[in-house]
Design a protein around this nucleic acid. Structure first.
Length: 268
DNA sequence: GGCCAGGGTAGAA
DNA sequence: TTCTACCATGGC
């Protein structure tokens, strides 16, 4: 896989599908503007279209978009499962973004029993209200900033009943060495740790593991995935999860992204 | 107007 | 251990 950084522009020699990458549910901080995507992560911004990424932070976004990873071999490996062939065809441009752990924890606590347009707007208001002002946009707020945000302030962003979860989890993340310890833990231990955060249950923990810690041996089961994957035998989210985790192994998380993307694309 | 959204929690059984 | 009621909010 090859790409070139010249000045503030990254040009890849392979095609990129930003629509697939950004709308498969792993990030909420982007908007489409004149056919291109504006993408925000932590305190960075880029404009992405075609095979080009324009940004003041080219090295950051080369890593963010995971440009050093060859996905062809993963797709070839997963293609031996018949049920995935269609969704891989549809979502073949998907890449798993390398995102910030704290940003993922807060974002996916907000995602619980919520819909994607609303999650995006709540996170946007969170950044505008508490994030550092950059050049024409706002950074994702730091743990040190969110630790002093009140329950009422979280509620006023539209976070609803998630206000106390956000407030309590922000305290833990800002005032302990939780983030460092969970990064160092193996997937099983990291999962147990994440489940102890207020507002983090099995599904949110799996999303944080996959998107914030790059643990691909996870299979988040939300309502969309459950609709597609449940059956007479697999009649609970837990059964769906363990079945596909065993089936896809170290590539389960990537497989889940293909399935999620196609499920949402087919059903609006 | 009821149902749904990238669900989790507390309390009951 | 598993089951239920409840939790804000906006789009459909």
């Amino acid at each position: 896989m090859k790409y070139v950084i010249e000045g503030n522009t990254i040009t890849t020699e392979f095609p990129l599908d930003f629509e697939a990458i950004l709308t498969c549910g792993q990030t909420f901080r982007f908007k489409k503007e004149d056919g291109a995507y504006e993408v925000f992560a932590l305190g960075h911004k880029c404009i992405a279209s075609g095979n080009k990424i324009v940004t003041d932070s080219p090295k950051f976004f080369a890593s963010y978009f995971d440009l050093d990873t060859d996905y062809d071999k993963f797709m070839a490996s997963l293609s031996k499962f018949d049920e995935l062939i269609e969704s891989i065809k549809v979502g073949k441009g998907i890449r798993i973004l390398r995102q910030d752990l704290f940003e993922m924890i807060i974002s996916f606590i907000i995602s619980a029993n919520n819909n994607i347009p609303r999650i995006k707007s709540i996170i946007n208001r969170l950044c505008v209200s508490f994030g550092e002002q950059m050049d024409g946009y706002y950074a994702f707020p730091s743990p040190d900033r969110l630790v002093s945000v009140t329950k009422e302030e979280f509620r006023s962003l539209g976070a609803g009943f998630r206000d106390t979860y956000l407030q309590k989890s922000a305290q833990i993340l800002a005032q302990t060495d939780f983030l460092q310890r969970v990064k160092a833990a193996d997937t099983a231990d990291a999962s147990k740790m994440l489940l102890q955060l207020p507002g983090v249950g099995p599904k949110v923990a799996d999303c944080i593991l996959l998107f914030g810690l790059r643990r691909w041996d996870c299979f988040p089961v939300d309502t969309w995935i459950f609709k597609v994957c449940s059956s007479v035998e697999l009649d609970t989210p837990g059964k769906v999860r363990s079945h596909y985790l065993k089936r896809y192994g170290a590539l389960a998380g990537l497989a889940q992204q293909y399935m999620f993307y196609m499920a949402r694309k087919n059903n609006g």
